[in-house]
């Protein structure tokens, strides 16, 4: 799921700090924005835009953090509105809902723990690539852009 890889150059102290901050900031935004699932995405997107002229290491990790938050948006929004309809419209709590809720909780917990781990490693200058998101970040984020 998570792979430690060699980056094309050794990132500096402040680069590692900024890259780690992209993950940390998304965590803080999740906590502050609860239960709304959009706040963390907005925060990560603005952080990404603020760092688009930064060095490759920082941009790469901002992209990975953004992609992770983007995938969270869809699954969390669906759960949020399903829950709202149950609470306010009196729709029944079905087995499907419980199953979906368990999947969402596992997905969120995994993402949360992975983000914490990545933030810690990136702060040390270690390049961490996630499954799928890492490959996608490699395609989106180019070194010479």
């Amino acid at each position: 799921m998570i792979k430690i890889k060699n980056f094309s150059y050794a990132p500096g102290e402040h680069e590692a700090e900024a890259a780690s901050n992209s993950y940390l900031m998304s965590l803080i935004a999740i906590i502050v924005g609860l239960p709304l699932p959009i706040v963390n995405l907005i925060a990560t997107l603005i952080f990404y835009l603020g760092n688009r002229k930064s060095t490759y290491f920082v941009r790469w990790h901002c992209t990975q953090a953004l992609l992770a938050q983007l995938s969270m948006l869809f699954i969390n929004s669906y759960t949020f509105w399903w829950t709202i309809s149950i609470i306010f419209k009196g729709e029944p709590i079905t087995s499907n809902y419980i199953a979906f809720l368990i999947v969402v909780i596992i997905f969120n917990l995994t993402e949360f723990i992975t983000t914490i781990y990545t933030a810690i490693q990136t702060r040390k200058g270690i390049h961490v690539e996630w499954w799928f998101y890492g490959a996608l970040s490699n395609i989106i984020c180019k070194e010479n852009s």
Partner: peptide, 19 residues
Amino acid sequence: GGMGIWTIIDWFMIQKATR
């Protein structure tokens, strides 16, 4: 503070912006 979101972002970005 951008409804609080910008404030949170700047906690992590302001040092870099200053430099």
